[in-house]
Write a protein that binds this DNA or RNA. Structure first.
Length: 593
RNA sequence: GGUCUCAUAGUUCAAGGGAUAGAACGAGGGUUUCCUAAACCCUAAAUACAGGUUCGAGUCCUGUUGGGACUACCA
């Protein structure tokens, strides 16, 4: 970023001297494409109106001016409408020294802004699946990225711990569970509760079938099935804080939380604050009252409260049921209000799937109409679904990819591959466990995060996630190799600290310094777009570039000690940025693998 | 029906209106007495269709076709 600013300034001066005042928007600097000579390129097409000359005749004098007046510019060339500028080796070496000296490189100074990121938001009636994994990894990574940009970040989880779906698993457990517990069954708590959720559905379907066989309409049977009526009764008893129901609810949710904690820990995600819907579901009613008074909402004859958004191209939306109980939107209005008030938030980010685009559109609009300007600072980070080759995952059809299973499979695959390659031969069992865990999760996380969050992505359970090519392990392997070289340098007593008296650079070395220089701008872009995938592709490119360099040029065996000193410092910085960048994705870099 | 979204090699993903559309997997071929071959190098292979805006379009606009999501007094 800084470099591009410097060039833009120099170019502006040059054009000013040669052709007169230029609109800054017309100055387009971009990185020179690899197949051309040069570091940065000025696109001259937009300038032709000002210069009234051909592209070549416009570009040539600018290049001439820059190389004559600035020592930083070593040379230039013009190809059609593009002025390619090469910066001097001295410039790049200074640049490198500045990066190496900057302990906070890639981390922005404190902004004083507070941003809340809500992610995960699970239901407590079944275990987490691949969709949740994408949500969790995205939320965690975005939080890290925003923190790196100097913001104060509050990570929160809003647990959906109440409602009819919770009662379903509770009821099924009560009826058919025979006192089964995670301890007695050896099952993880969330999976055990999920089992009874499925069990409920099985019996529910059977009852519907029975009623239909007796001549009842199917829609009617769905409402009248005894098990469903009982679940609804259970919900009413829960809301009345019936001690028996309430204690069962606490027990079973406790099992689920224990299970979730294991999964969260395995994924390496965490939260600063956990909200429970059972404690927030009554919020928002005062806002409804306020809206009614302001005449923004209206009440229908049955007592239900609505807002008419047809003028905004949307529909009418229910805000309060006829019986005065709240709905999802009521709660979300309430929690948003409370969060902004209590935390003095500058921004609130909801990491929620794109199936809820409509909901958030309405939420923002309602708050706006109520006169809360902070509604502009609500951002729905709307990510795409993870689909299977057959389409969307459906829990009822048993096509979900379970989070715990997938994590376990990844680690086991990492173990098999590592053993096959003989990578764990000199490790203690503990070291081996740590490595395969890091690599397996690295593969999974990179696989998910390299995709643009907005896009629907595909996961094929029949094909295992790759460990070669554009993958997490590729980057981890690159890092491990660098660390290995640096270890060897230390072991053989090579001291590579201090300023290298290196004066010239290989083109690959210039390219690597250039890549390192791009890191802060990459983090900034990732933060602006809420897109960890930008970081993923950045660290992949950096690793790829290093691998080519490493293949062609010896580091430890380089005979010129100053050259060797520089190379060791260079690769140390590459390892550092690989580690920093991947940390923003929640991916660890092993010392060896 | 309405609203929104997506369409790029065989497959999974890239490409802030800019040069000859990049990678990876898969396919074919090659590299190891040399710092970790989970690596490196070479070959073949793609912008759904039709218009438009622009000096310049995978990218912006319109239409067509084909996917997906949403459109509950569920959360």
């Amino acid at each position: 970023m800084e470099i591009e600013q410097f060039i833009t300034k120099a170019v502006t001066t040059a054009i000013g001297a040669l052709y007169g005042e230029v609109d800054p928007a017309q100055i387009q600097i971009q990185k020179t494409r690899r197949e051309f000579e040069g570091d940065y390129t000025l696109v001259v097409f937009p300038l032709l109106k000002l210069t009234r000359k051909s592209p070549a005749d416009t570009a040539g004098p600018i290049g001439e001016y820059l190389t004559a007046h600035y020592p930083e510019f070593a040379s230039y060339n013009v190809i059609s409408g593009f002025l390619n500028l090469s910066l001097s080796d001295r410039f790049w070496l200074d640049r490198f020294a500045a990066i190496a000296d900057d302990e906070a490189f890639g981390t922005a100074p404190r902004t004083g802004r507070t941003i809340m990121v809500e992610y995960s938001s699970p239901n407590t009636n079944k275990p987490l699946h691949l969709g949740h994994i994408r949500n969790n990894l995205l939320g965690y990574s975005v939080a890290q990225i925003l923190a790196a940009r100097g913001h104060r970040v509050i990570k929160v989880n809003l647990v959906n711990d109440r409602g009819i779906h919770i009662c379903k698993s509770m009821l099924a457990w009560k009826r058919y569970g025979q006192g089964e517990t995670p301890a007695s069954s050896g099952m993880k708590g969330d999976h055990l509760v999920g089992k009874y959720y499925v069990e409920f559905d099985k019996h529910y379907k059977a009852e519907i079938k029975e009623l239909v066989a007796k001549g009842m309409e199917e829609d009617e049977a769905k409402k009248k099935a005894p098990i469903m009526l009982e679940a609804q009764e259970m919900l009413r008893r829960w809301e009345a804080k019936d001690p028996e129901v309430y204690s069962l609810w606490e027990t079973m949710n406790g099992w689920v939380y224990e299970g979730f904690d294991v999964t969260y820990k395995a994924l390496g995600v965490d939260f600063d604050k956990v909200y429970y819907e059972s404690q927030t579901y009554l919020l928002g009613k005062s806002l409804v009252e306020e809206g009614l008074q302001k005449g923004i909402f209206f009440r229908k004859e049955d007592g239900s409260v609505w807002i008419d958004l047809t003028a905004d191209g949307l529909d009418q939306k229910l805000l309060l049921r006829g019986d005065g109980t709240s709905v999802y939107m009521t709660q979300d209005l309430g929690t948003a209000f409370r969060r902004f008030e209590e935390n003095n938030l500058d921004e609130m980010i909801y990491v929620v799937g794109n199936e809820q685009n409509y909901h958030f559109q309405v939420l923002k609009l309602i708050l706006k109409k109520l006169g809360y300007d902070w509604s502009d600072h609500i951002y729905h980070l709307s990510y795409g679904m993870v689909e299977l080759p057959e389409g969307k995952m459906k829990s009822r059809e048993g096509t979900v990819v379970d989070a715990d299973d997938l994590i376990r499979d990844m680690v086991e695959t990492a173990r098999d591959m590592s053993n096959e390659l003989g990578k764990l031969d000199n490790c203690t069992p503990d070291e081996a466990d740590a490595i395969v865990r890091t690599v397996g999760l690295g593969a999974l996380k990179y696989f998910i995060l390299k995709v643009d969050p907005k896009k629907t992505m595909l996961f094929d359970p029949r094909e295992s996630i790759d460990f070669n090519g554009n993958t997490g392990p590729f980057i981890q392997y690159t890092h491990a190799r660098i660390r290995s070289v640096l270890r060897k340098a230390d072991e053989t007593g090579i001291d590579y600290s201090g300023n290298p008296a290196q004066a010239t650079l290989l083109p690959e070395e210039t390219a690597l310094i250039k890549a390192l220089s791009d890191y802060p701008a990459t983090v900034a872009a990732a933060a602006e777009n809420f897109s960890p995938s930008l970081i993923a592709s950045y660290i992949y490119d950096l690793a790829k570039q290093f691998n080519g360099y490493y293949h062609d040029h010896s580091i430890l065996k380089e005979e010129n000690p100053e050259c060797r000193r520089f190379r060791l410092q260079l690769i140390a910085q590459i390892a550092r940025i690989l580690r920093k960048g991947s940390a923003l994705l929640g991916i660890e870099m092993p010392e060896r693998m």
